[in-house]
């Protein structure tokens, strides 16, 4: 099993349950969303969640990016983890959409990751990572 890569200090160890199980079961605090499941179903329950794991069956399936954004836009502050076919060249965009931990199927070279994440000093759009978009730098 590949180690989780974390960009937050609190560690959540409870295994994530499926979305259906989570919605039925009031005491779980970690949930896993498959690509194609509706992250909005979690919005009324955000208070009790400390981990949402979103699966990427193949890296080209980009639904998880929107799921992450939806959760962060709704104020979710717990751990948001991407699992599955998560590759180093997708990490920067995932971070921008609010993911703060990763369990990739295949190991990621830490040095390549560091470079990839540090590469772009600026961004064009506002997203849930709250980085300042270029247009705001231009207009103060």
């Amino acid at each position: 099993m590949v180690e989780a890569i974390r960009f937050r200090d609190d560690i959540h160890e409870e295994p994530a349950v499926s979305l259906d199980a989570f919605l039925d079961q009031s005491n779980a605090t970690a949930v896993r969303i498959e690509a194609g499941e509706d992250a909005r179903l979690l919005l009324p329950l955000l208070d009790r969640i400390s981990l949402v794991e979103i699966d990427f069956p193949v890296f080209g399936d980009g639904r998880g990016y929107s799921a992450a954004q939806i959760l962060r836009e709704a104020g979710y502050e717990g751990e948001l983890r991407a699992s599955g076919d998560v590759l180093v060249d997708q990490l920067a965009y995932m971070r921008r959409c609010g993911f703060d931990s990763f369990i990739p199927d295949a190991p990621i070279d830490p040095k390549v990751m560091e470079e990839a994440l540090a590469r772009y000093e600026h961004v064009y759009q506002g997203t849930s990572d709250q980085r300042t978009p270029i247009w705001r730098h231009r207009h103060g």
Binding site: F59, Y65, V123, Y124, Q125, I134, W135
Partner: peptide
């Protein structure tokens, strides 16, 4: 153009 360049949410569309 600027908004869509490097858009993190919309780079792996269907």
């Amino acid at each position: 153009r600027q908004w869509s360049s490097f858009h993190p949410e919309f780079s792996y569309l269907p």
